[in-house]
Design a protein around this nucleic acid. Structure first.
Lengths: 126, 126
DNA sequence: GTGGATGCAAACTCTTTGCACCTTG
DNA sequence: CAAGGTGCAAAGAGTTTGCATCCAC
């Protein structure tokens, strides 16, 4: 049973506007723009429900940070900026995964994580 | 200044015996075999120090779990068993990373994570 | 003997849960 | 109007830190 509350709308709108994976804090700040009374608990509950619902997918990042994004059509991976901590989508995959799997192991899925400076942090640094 | 305490020896011994990346709890249990009074705080402090010291490297896994391993000579990646939660090394790399990096971004490093069933969990499941 | 290391417990951070109140359908 | 959702605050899990004690050098 899914109700279309203001809070849920504000959360989804945050993702639509951002067009990149968002962390819990980012979602909270963005969604509070539409719905100031929004609390963290509601964010966690909705993110969880939206993932079960396949309206969002999780992107797990080193350091224990979980990001979320609207599921894209294409298989893609992620770039994490070590300076501003934002996460971006990487369009291509370009990896021959099957060759990597050890004998006897069963592969379910894979994730490629790139780390470095994003566009704007690269410019700032130089 | 590095002291060669029983605790530190027990921790390093755990990694030598395991021959695969270990999580904090795994290290604690294994190292307590040699040094029963060992507490969690000591594990965390030593793991951190050993990473700074380059005696260990961190392997960040989804769900916020950090694993540690003895640095190998070769560039390699990791396989996480979704059944037993253990992490294994994957020898080959086989990825054309440079092609993936978006324009204007600066790549520092990359990580490939494979998920599925390990050897023994594949056998148990079938 | 002395300073770094340990072990305990308290503090912190991030996430989850209980419960009274509110809101959607 | 009734169930599900929200907000707060308290509870959990995992990690870090303060401090008295211990032990490697």
């Amino acid at each position: 049973m899914e109700r279309n509350t203001q809070q849920r709308q504000a959360i989804l709108k945050a993702f639509e506007r951002a067009e990149r994976p968002l962390g819990v804090q980012e979602v909270l700040e963005l969604a509070q723009g539409d719905c100031p009374s929004l609390g963290v608990a509601t964010i966690y509950r909705n993110l969880k429900a939206l993932v079960v619902d396949k309206k969002l997918i999780t992107v797990d990042m080193p350091g224990g940070l979980t990001f979320y994004e609207i599921p894209g059509i294409h298989h893609h991976h992620h770039f994490s900026c070590t300076n501003c901590q934002k996460v971006f989508d990487v369009e291509k995959c370009g990896i021959n995964v099957k060759n990597l799997v050890p004998n006897g192991f069963t592969l379910q899925r894979h994730e490629v994580l790139l780390f470095g400076f994003c566009d704007s942090c690269t410019q700032t640094a130089s």
